[in-house]
């Protein structure tokens, strides 16, 4: 077990997978320079054929990823910021997500579209989105939202080995946060959620960036005797709601914390599943703690006003555990 920052965990996953399989190639803008540090040293280790800096041409790059995957490679395309997925959206939405289906299952497309998402760094509206919900709605792509360094590594390794396209989003604002990461070759199973903390009073489901502040709050509230169960779904597609529903049978109360905008967020979907399949267990309304339907602002007080954080998570939990029906 090593203590690694999120970004180091990603770097280590890329290095191990590239060493393991010569068909894994990586390209994107400034991957040699690696401004986040996640692709650091890979060019030196694996050379210019397998690690390529590209022009800033997202429309082309996403399509090239599909073409190279169709022709037999395992492609990791680093798109830097999640907002840039919008720039390259056509080939993700119209090609990667549909080519296998449209051709009657003739082709496998092992692609990881990776990017840094979320706010918290005064990067303003065009560098701070958490766009996982729109990819959930595409069909045909897996969506990975790891919340810990161990999952960042294990999920990336799984995504690279998998034969489907994956949108892999890690919270940029949390790239420096450290956690224990296994030294062994450990993959995180695709579409399997994880109980990050057991509890009995309330279930909190944090998405990606919200895992860490949720665990901090749960720890704090435990001292007051509020027992919080934390279920990290890890993958938005395939979305495993089994542990959430199981947890609800125990707690009857649910808050979903999602850094996406509220309208049609991952929180909306999870809340809908709880209302449908967990209806008889619910003792209180299901709460979605999300970003209001706004662009993410620049100035720190403005940004803090719209992003979910530990304080807001705590307030939601307190409100819900004291909720009395009628």
């Amino acid at each position: 077990m090593a203590r690694l920052r999120m970004i180091q965990a990603i770097n280590s996953a890329l290095r191990e997978e590239m060493a393991r399989d010569p068909k894994v190639i990586l390209f994107g803008e400034d991957v040699r320079m690696s401004l986040f540090g996640d692709t650091k040293g890979l060019f030196e280790e694996f050379g210019p054929d397998r690690v390529r800096d590209t022009p800033i041409s997202e429309v082309l790059l996403t399509g090239m990823a599909v073409g190279a995957a169709a022709a037999g490679y395992r492609v990791v395309l680093h798109l830097m910021y999640a907002n840039f997925l919008y720039t390259g959206f056509d080939a993700i939405a119209n090609q990667a997500a549909k080519l296998r289906y449209m051709t009657g299952g003739q082709i496998k497309l092992p692609i990881v579209f990776m990017a840094s998402c979320g706010g918290g760094r005064s990067s303003a509206a065009q560098h701070s989105d958490s766009p996982h919900p729109m990819f959930m709605n595409l069909g045909g792509v897996h969506v990975a939202t790891p919340g810990t360094p161990a999952d960042a590594k294990g999920m990336l390794k799984s995504a690279i080995r998998d034969d489907n396209p994956t949108i892999y989003l890690t919270a940029g604002g949390r790239g420096g946060s450290a956690g224990d990461v296994p030294d062994e070759d450990v993959t995180t199973p695709i579409g399997v959620s994880f109980c990050a903390r057991e509890g009995t009073d309330i279930t909190v489901v944090p998405i990606g960036s919200m895992v860490r502040p949720t665990l901090t709050v749960a720890e704090r509230l435990a001292k007051e005797g509020i027992s919080v169960e934390v279920i990290d779904p890890r993958w938005m597609v395939p979305l495993d709601t089994s542990l959430i529903l199981k947890s609800l049978t125990k707690t009857g109360r649910l808050v979903v914390v999602d850094e996406a905008r509220d309208l049609c967020s991952a929180a909306s979907q999870i809340a809908a599943v709880a209302a449908d399949q967990g209806f008889s267990d619910l003792k209180a309304p299901v709460r979605r703690l999300t970003v209001p339907d706004l662009a993410i602002p620049y100035s720190p007080p403005l940004e803090r006003a719209v992003l979910p954080d530990a304080e807001k998570i705590e307030a939601s939990i307190r409100e819900l555990v004291s909720y009395k029906a009628g």
Partner: peptide, 27 residues
């Protein structure tokens, strides 16, 4: 499409095949 014959396929998006072919050329 018929991948067994190198036919990555027709495409309903005008220009959609250009990037795919560029990726196949990289491969």
């Amino acid at each position: 499409a018929d991948f067994s014959r190198g036919i990555i396929g027709a495409n309903g998006i005008v220009g959609g095949g250009i990037a795919l072919a560029t990726g196949a050329a990289l491969a």
